[in-house]
Each structure stands twice: as C-alpha cells, then as structure tokens.
Simulated scan of single mutants.
Amino acid sequence: MLTAGISSLQFSAFRNYAQLQLELRASLIVIIGDNGVGKTNILEALSLLSPGKGLRSSKLSQMTTFDITPLPCWTVAANLKEDGFDTILGTGLEYTSSGSEKRRLKINGNIVRSQADFAEHLNVIWIVPAMARLFQESGSIRRKFVDRMAYAFDPTHTNRLHRYEHYLRERSTLLREGRGDSTWLASLEKNLAEDGIAIVHARAEVVRNVTEHQPTDSASPFPRFFAQMRGEVEEWCRHMTAVAAEEKLRLAFANNRTQDAHTGGSVFGPHRSDLFVKHLGKQIPAELCSTGEQKMLLIALTLAFTKVQMEQSNRVTLLLLDDVIAHLDSHYRHYLFQELCQMVEKGAKLQTWMTGTSLSDFVYLKQSAQYIRIKNTTLYDGYDDNDS
C-alpha cells in the first residue's frame, strides 16, 4: 500500500508518449521493457518535478513528441500522496509571445514562479547510466549531484544557487566591460560572499551526513567510503566562523577583480568546489577505482542519502534507478532490495522507481513492488510469470 509517493502520473506529448496515465499503489515501482521503448522517459518526466532540467538536462523543446504535427507543448502532472493529503504538481513547455521556450510550473492548479517551490513538497534523486562516470567527469557534475541532495533538507538551497550564479554573471559582465563602479561591485561581492558561504555549508552538511549514514553492517556488499566537499573556501569554513569566512571571500572577490576581468568568473567561490570520495576498503580515491567499483560507490552514496532523508526530512523522496540493477549480481541486488524495503517498513517517505529489461532481475520484489511492463509502447500493469 502506498503511504507516501506519486499515486498517479499523467503526461502528454512527452518524448515517445502522445498520452500516458499511470495509477500507482506501491512504494516500489518496477518498469520492465526492451531497450528503446520509453522506460527512461517515464523517469525523466518524474525528474522534472524537481528543480533543474531533469535527468537528461535536455532543452525543453527536445522533450516534445516529434511525430505529432504541429509540434505540441508537452505537459507532466502527478498526484503526490503524503500523510493522507494530495498535492498536484504540474509542469510543461510553453512559448512566450517572443517565441522563446519557457517552463510552466503549477502546484494544485496555481502557477508558481520558482522551481524551488517543487522542492518544498518533493525531493527527486536519480542514478542513470551516464552517471557511471560521475567520478571521471568535471567537478560541476559532482556539484550538481550534491546539490540535488541538499535540496532535500533545504529547498532554499536552489534559490541561493540561482542568486549566486546571477550575481557572478553580472559581476563578470561589469568587469569585462569595465563599466561597474566600486560601490556596485562591492554590493555584488557582498551578496556573492553571503550566498557562497551558505552554499558551502549546505553542501558540507549533506555530504557529512551521507558519510555518517552509510551501512556499517558486515552483510553490506557495497564499499564503505569517505566523502567530503573540497576547495579553498571549504578549507576556510573548516577553520573559521561563517561570518569570518564571508568576509574573507568578499575580500578575495575584491582583490581579484583585475584577474577575474580577464579570465571570467572568479578564482574563488563554491563554483570551484568538488566532491571528493575515497574507497575505504582500498584506501584510494574514487577516480582511481575500477568502473565497477565506481558504480558500487555511487549506489552506496545514494543508499546512505536515502537513510539521511528518512531520519531528517519530512518531504517525500523519489529515488529513480535507471537500468542500475542490470550491473549488479544477485547478492548486490538482494541487499539493495532489502534495504529499500526495510526503509519503507520503518516509515521512510520513499518511493523507488526502477527500470530494467529482465523481469527475473526483480523477482525478489514480487510480493512488494508494482510492475509496469512496456511492450510495443503499450503499458501493462502487473507481474507476468511468462515474462520472467
């Protein structure tokens, strides 16, 4: 029985679906189908109910169903069930009078301006195949991974990020064009320092919590890890008060105006931070681990996050696992399934959505999950032994 999560999902003109409606009744949802039938598209629609561009980071117009003429504007709506109450979250593509694309956001039928409003009701985190290279990619990818976790505990985190990026762009433009007076620049740098230190603290707190909540039982096949946000500003914050760190960052911005005018951005700030992860069993950084070990570390981080969420946040979390199970042997799969089931049994406001091509990979969940099978773009509800 579903106590917290998405109880219904509808979308139109989205990717390969002209229309889709799902009624959900479980905390574990398994979507089975061949490659290319649209499993990931369903998870992408769910990911758009959170701040950001979704799990593919696509342009809004790229999500439209292209075999319909004229090209329609896609819509996604979901009924969020929590503590006996229902909240309708909706988003979609619309065009402004000038023809530019725009994201429409609604909660209970009322238009809202900020994607952060979604984070007040729902947190969404995902693992997709592209993230297998999380520890090999640029620091910006890892920062986004941490920021999605930070939204779960502080929805205003996304507003701070947007403000910080806006102030940084405005300062860069003024410095490049040489038209900003010192008072104007000083005001921007003060705002940058305040939001920047708040961002650093929010990231550090969530990473610390994730590290402390990783499984400690000997039965866990997933590697233990040490995780920490690193950067020059992070070092300041570890050794001084927030007020002192703000002042030091403000002075760093002021003292580096000439250099920043030539290079753009800033030498200092949370946009330079990175997530460091060490495999404790091997005592080596994650980026030096094998591809398989990196995948296991990513799952271990995500499992630890769900435990933090269960203990410290009142919001519902959607955990989207796209084609993750295929890379795990039976021991890893059973442990992961067991952990997810136990968290729900203990009262976690967690709904997990998993995709795969083989029903047999999910047979362990036969009594607890809702199965959605996709064949030739048609969706079927329920477990079918003939597909095992």
Rank of each mutant, 00 (worst) to 15 (best):
L2D: 06
R333G: 07
G109C: 04
L122H: 02
L340G: 02
L28C: 05
E287S: 12
V277D: 01
G264L: 05
D181N: 15
G90K: 01
T183D: 14
K307M: 10
M310E: 15
E311R: 15
H327A: 12
Q338V: 03
E165F: 01
E23Y: 03
N256W: 04
Y164F: 15
K81P: 02
V243D: 15
F226N: 09
T352E: 03
E235M: 05
N79C: 12
K248L: 09
V308L: 11
L55D: 01
V210S: 09
Q338N: 15
P221A: 05
Q309G: 02
H121F: 15
L275M: 09
H121K: 13
Y17T: 05
I374A: 08
T65Y: 00
G52Y: 05
L188A: 10
L328A: 03
N35G: 11
C341K: 11
N16D: 05
G90P: 00
I32P: 01
E120T: 13
I88S: 06
V206N: 07
T302P: 01
T306E: 00
F226H: 11
P270H: 06
L192V: 08
Q342A: 07
L174G: 10
S98W: 05
D217H: 09
R176V: 04
N108C: 08
I372V: 10
E339V: 11
N191Q: 15
D86H: 11
N79Q: 15
G99D: 11
D195F: 11
E234D: 15
S218Y: 07
G281D: 14
Q115I: 02
T87Y: 09
R230I: 13
F118K: 00
G347S: 10
D86S: 15
A132T: 11
K366H: 08
A261V: 13
K375W: 00
R143N: 07
F253R: 07
S388N: 14
I88E: 07
G54S: 07
N16A: 06
L318P: 01
H162Q: 12
L71K: 06
C73I: 00
K282P: 08
Q115H: 06
S187Q: 12
T64N: 06
I374W: 01
A18G: 00
S360N: 10
E165M: 06
S172I: 07
A186L: 09
H213D: 10
N79K: 14
M1A: 09
L318A: 10
V146S: 03
K278I: 12
L359S: 11
G382M: 08
Q309P: 01
F145Y: 10
R148W: 04
F268D: 05
M131A: 06
F276V: 05
Q214P: 02
W184L: 15
I284E: 11
E170P: 05
A219T: 13
E120H: 13
T216G: 07
L48S: 00
Y380D: 07
A304R: 03
M149V: 08
A348R: 02
L251A: 14
H327S: 14
I68G: 00
D361S: 08
K144P: 03
E247M: 08
A254G: 10
